[in-house]
Design a protein around this nucleic acid. Structure first.
Length: 367
DNA sequence: CACGGAATCA
DNA sequence: TGATTCCGTG
């Protein structure tokens, strides 16, 4: 099969330097070529998100049903694309599904029973990489909030509105479900006994803060040649039916930062999040991500300062709040949310800065 | 089609 | 670790 495909991901403009946080370094792995989308090292779940995000694959794979739930409409095609990406010409759905099972064994995905080719992301395993949250995670504020401040019991101390808001990011609002004892605590609720609790908590939540080497974090757009910086939050243009976030922060939206109409308390946002750092007047930040790569034809509608193809989540105003029920007691609730990343269909099976350059030149069509 | 075990690989 | 491959079961 064709493994000379170029990574149109590499055509992604660099993350604006603006977005490079002050005084914050991302972990090494984030900058490694193999962490880049388009790399053969891309992970399957990540690849799936890529496909889900692309309009042109709607007939292949698409969000459906509950938030986070997607259906593989054309298993063979998904497998084929995956095979291309990974240079595994003999990939087929049978094998792909084995990999998917690997994911739901790890609770990254889970199977929607009774629905063929239907899976659901458990975003609690897909950590949100988001600066403000990062900062908040580090902040005394956060650590002081809620059950996150460990040691004692599970009961949530009253949260400030901010705290609640924050927490809501990390746990899907769910109905009281006294019947289900198996519900796992959300990230912020996890209790880790012992002295290292705080560190562990942070690492659990933001693995890259700690020593964790390979967190389940979407690969960053930090391949060689890029300005170092996080991908932040890319637009999931084919917006999954994810929950809304009360205060205008939806991690699925391209800019999850409080922009002009932010309802977020400014105090949660250290000034240096803002390129222009004017705490009082939040300068509208250029869209961080919208780095939808590749085919220029895809960029229709993209104008400077706008993100392309922003589709707001189709989910209705009210969440499909229902108790987990489809799986046998496993965590069918989606807790978190995240993401970053966007990318593309097929690309180079080897990543190299050089390849990027070549890709630039070849810009046009791939596939 | 879904699932699991096990060996194997990079 | 995150798959891939093979094999087997239901």
């Amino acid at each position: 099969m064709d493994c000379n495909c170029v990574s149109d991901l590499l055509l992604t403009p660099p993350v604006p330097a603006l977005w490079t946080p002050v005084g914050f370094a991302f972990p090494d792995w984030a900058y490694k070529p193999e962490s880049s989308p388009g790399s053969r090292q891309i992970q399957l779940w990540h690849f799936i998100l890529e496909l889900l995000q692309k309009e042109e694959y709607q007939n292949v794979i698409a969000w459906q049903g509950d938030y986070g739930e997607f259906v593989i409409k054309d298993p063979d095609e998904v497998a084929r694309l995956w095979g291309i990406r990974k240079c595994k010409p003999h990939m087929n759905y049978d094998k792909l599904s084995r990999a998917l099972r690997y994911y739901y064994n790890k609770r990254i995905l889970h199977k929607t029973k009774g629905k063929r080719f239907t899976y659901k992301f458990n975003f609690s395993k897909v950590v949100l990489v988001n600066y403000p949250l990062l900062e908040m995670a580090n902040s005394p504020f956060l650590l002081a909030q809620s059950s996150f401040n460990g040691g004692h019991t599970h009961d949530c101390s009253p949260l400030t509105p901010e705290g609640k808001t924050l927490q809501s990011l990390f746990s899907t609002p769910r109905l009281p479900d006294p019947g289900n004892r198996e519900i796992r605590p959300s990230l912020f609720e996890r209790q880790i006994p012992g002295t290292e609790t705080e560190k562990l908590r942070l690492e659990t939540t933001f693995p890259f803060l700690g020593s964790a080497k390979k967190p389940l974090v979407p690969s960053f757009w930090c391949g060689p040649g890029y300005t170092k910086g996080p991908s932040l939050l890319t637009s999931y243009s084919r917006s999954p039916p994810f929950p809304d976030y009360h205060w205008g922060f939806n991690p699925y939206l391209p800019s999850s930062f409080p922009l002009t109409n932010s309802k977020l308390p400014g105090s949660l946002y250290p000034p240096h999040f803002y390129p222009n750092s004017l705490p009082g007047s939040l300068t509208p930040i250029p869209t961080p991500i919208s780095l939808l790569p590749g085919d220029p034809s895809e960029r229709v509608g993209q104008t400077a300062g706008n993100f392309p193809r922003i589709c707001l989540p189709p989910y209705p105003g009210s969440l499909p709040l229902r108790p987990a029920k489809d799986t046998t007691g496993s965590d069918s609730e989606l807790e978190i949310t995240d993401l970053s990343e966007s990318s593309s269909e097929n690309e180079g099976c080897e990543f190299s800065p050089r390849g990027a350059a070549v890709a630039m030149e070849k810009l046009g069509v791939s596939e």
